[in-house]
């Protein structure tokens, strides 16, 4: 019997954006406040999981065409390459730097290379979480 889950789907289509935004917020807050790549990635993954719960797998996969295994690879590779970048410039592996840049509208913002590292962490976390959940659910 097909259950009627119109309420779940409607709420999901709104709250998924809120969760995604919150995940992005946590990610960027990481340098000065609680948050960071790991928890940000987990929250992003939780939004995706909610989508998979509310809609069936085919529908979501049509909308989000990502191979999460590849995503994990990209994430780990990116994090490693930030370290290699420092090496190529003659610093010890994984040396990070930051710069204060004036943007026209936002004002002075601190840009740090460790954000790139955290992007890698986030991608790896999202990729790994989604790979686990999707591979468990596929055979069931």
């Amino acid at each position: 019997m097909k259950t009627n889950d119109v309420i779940l789907q409607t709420i999901t289509s709104i709250s998924a954006f809120i969760i995604l935004a919150f995940g992005a917020y946590l990610f960027f807050a990481g340098h000065h406040d609680p948050g960071g790549g790991f928890i940000g990635g987990l929250v992003l993954a939780s939004a995706l999981v909610l989508l998979y719960l509310a809609f069936d797998m085919e529908t979501v996969q049509q909308g989000i065409r990502i191979d999460y295994k590849i995503l994990t690879g990209i994430g780990v590779g990116l994090s490693t390459l930030t370290g290699v970048g420092a090496m190529l410039l003659g610093f010890p592996f994984l040396t990070h730097t930051f710069e204060y840049v004036d943007f026209p509208f936002f004002g002075e913002i601190e840009l740090a290379t460790s954000v790139l590292f955290e992007v890698g962490v986030s991608l790896a976390v999202v990729g790994a979480t989604m790979t686990i959940i999707l591979s468990i659910s596929e055979d069931a």
Binding site: V76, G77, T80, G83
Partner: peptide, 15 residues
Amino acid sequence: ILPLLIPLLTGVLLI
């Protein structure tokens, strides 16, 4: 670092 880095990057590449 290279004895760690080379297999790590290779492993990622092979994904």
